[in-house]
Nucleic acid binder design. Structure first.
Lengths: 340, 340
DNA sequence: ACTGGCACTCTGTCACTCGGAGTGCCAATG
DNA sequence: CATTGGCACTCCGAGTGACAGAGTGCCAGT
């Protein structure tokens, strides 16, 4: 038997009530709070079907029903209506983001804003180097045999590395190096640079070859290999809302997962453009987060995506609201980046 | 009545047992586990005195005793013997810290190491700009009216800011600016720079004055005003060890405090050289941390101090071990910085 | 000054009860 | 055939009382 409209309506009511009250919801309370136009007994029959299909379950016999992960999934996919942001929220976002002075500041403000609005844990990835282009490469002599390599990406990210040279170089040589490197790599996407770096070495005169080879290896490291994705976290304290009820008793595994940057990157680093992704409970590949849900999306100037952001909370979360907020914040941040 | 040696010995035993077992300790268990050479009744009398003096207390009538903050304080000040690190720990520290490629990496490794060794929350402050000197200032033309200012400090820290110029400048002018700025500010402590920056503007020829004034204001911001202290956190999950017993039931306030960088800076930003500071429970000025203890110290190359680091945990913590670890890590990091 | 003994207090737990909420099923109804 | 009212059943959670165990305070004795 398939699910008719009323059964879906019942599921929606259950999800909404449970999210709000955090308590199993029974048939009687349901018909009272929502105008379903049927009796509790009917609702009970519907509930039995929904349970059979795996969308809800009872914590114990003769308790109310609670949505399962599958139930939330159905809710998110088919039942939830987009919840528009309140003007107050829009204003909050704008007010929060204007006045950021540099990229660090943008990320910092964004992550706090997101945590505050959703009242959950927020994660924001710095613009990924892999998706950026080289704006400028600077070589700063530190001593005669040491250079500081500073890479400035078009997203505003700045990376630096120390280069140990095989022998002393003159200031003029540094200037030449700088020019060559910028001519070759300036404006290129970082992911396209490896062959170019190689050609830099190949095109060198023998006497400067050693130096260039040295620089090249650090360049490769900085541009590609290391490929260090950074991210920022905020709102951990929000995990404690709802007491020990969410996250089946202990925050331990969740806190542990949040400390692993690799894990976080996997969570928010999804690539599909302008799509918001929702992972509910068991859908998470990371065991520690089986009791959590993640809402994430990409952001970037215009339609390109340079990084991800998202929030993490209990499976029992306000999905429509969270999704709307995450989307809105991502769009605002994208606009902000586009202005640079 | 004052505290004779045996009473102090009893206090030490109580602290040690309680830290280990996390349970109120009674007179009988005490004489069994420690060779005190007296009967439980005697110990009870001593306990009564200790309680009167405020060093221990009973959670309820006829339960064992638990140290108070004052008790821990006395223990730390007078009773605890320095606990030398195990060779394994020493090796762990060395292994963990070698191979760091840049400052970010050093801080990152340090904070994780500290969290792992002490099994508590670790905080490491980046080398403070206020205590650093300027190694080099770089000006990178982004467009004709925009410069990227990159400051490299002797501690390895790099800061960058965008400078909007009043009008277009030629590349040669940038070179001149760069030379002037570095001549004046290179090698100076950041805290000494403000008058120098002012003199830079004063010494300018009228035609380049506008540009220089613009640059100067950003310089001041970068060098002094903004004075952004950064820090890194790790080991939050360790808060959940010991269940809900520590931190009187909820992690909430602690997690909240850990999100406030200002608060963390206050905690670990103590200036006295080569002194390890221990704040126990109520000694913390921040209300949210009344149920926590903080062990912190400064670090830096040689005897100068460029930043702070420390750990935060329940008042019931292994003070001797923690203090030893924090000190050792600080020294290793200092050595590492000195090598640069 | 220390010790043994004793009465007292308080906790934590176990078993038990009981009301309430919620369900499943069934027969009746439109 | 879907819906409904009724009823018996289950289970949770709160409350109660009894009880063992641990620990204390105090006092008299050494």
């Amino acid at each position: 038997m398939s699910l008719d409209d009323r059964k879906l309506e019942v599921l929606r009511a259950i999800v909404e009530d449970y999210v709000e009250t955090q308590e199993p919801v029974g048939s009687k309370a349901l018909v009272e709070r929502h105008q379903l136009g049927v009796s509790p007994a009917t609702v009970r029959n519907d509930m039995a079907v929904l349970e059979e299909e795996g969308y809800i379950r009872q914590p114990h016999t003769s308790a109310g029903r609670v949505p399962t992960d599958a139930g939330y999934r159905l809710f998110v996919d088919r039942l939830s209506k987009v919840k528009p942001l309140s003007p107050a929220e829009r204003r909050a976002i704008e007010r929060f983001l204007v006045g950021a002075v540099d990229l660090d500041d943008v990320v910092h403000r964004t992550v706090r804003l997101l945590a505050q609005l959703t009242r959950q844990v927020a994660v924001v990835q710095y613009p990924s180097l892999a998706r950026s282009s080289v704006r400028h490469l600077e070589l700063v002599p530190i001593s005669t045999t040491r250079l500081m390599l500073v890479m400035i990406a078009d997203t505003g990210r700045v990376e630096q590395r120390l280069v140990e040279l095989p022998g002393p170089v003159h200031a003029d040589d540094v200037t030449t190096l700088r020019r060559k490197v910028n001519e070759k790599l300036g404006g290129q996407r970082l992911s396209d640079t490896p062959p170019l770096v190689q050609s830099l070495v190949d095109d060198c005169t023998p006497d400067s070859r050693n130096t260039m080879a040295c620089l090249a290896s650090v360049l490769l490291e900085t541009l590609v290999e290391r490929n260090e994705e950074r991210l920022m976290l905020a709102g951990t304290a929000n995990l404690t809302r709802g007491g020990v009820l969410d996250f089946q008793g202990t925050l331990r595994p969740v806190l542990e997962a949040l400390e692993e940057e690799v894990i976080l990157l996997k969570l928010i680093g999804d690539l599909e453009p302008s799509k918001t992704r929702v992972r509910i409970g068991d859908e998470n590949e990371i065991d520690n987060l089986r009791s959590a849900s993640v809402v994430s999306t990409g952001y970037g100037p215009g339609t390109t995506i340079v990084g991800g952001l998202g929030v993490l909370g209990p499976t029992r979360m306000d999905y429509p609201g969270t999704i709307a907020t995450v989307r809105a914040v991502a769009r605002y941040v994208g606009d902000l980046l586009a202005q640079n």
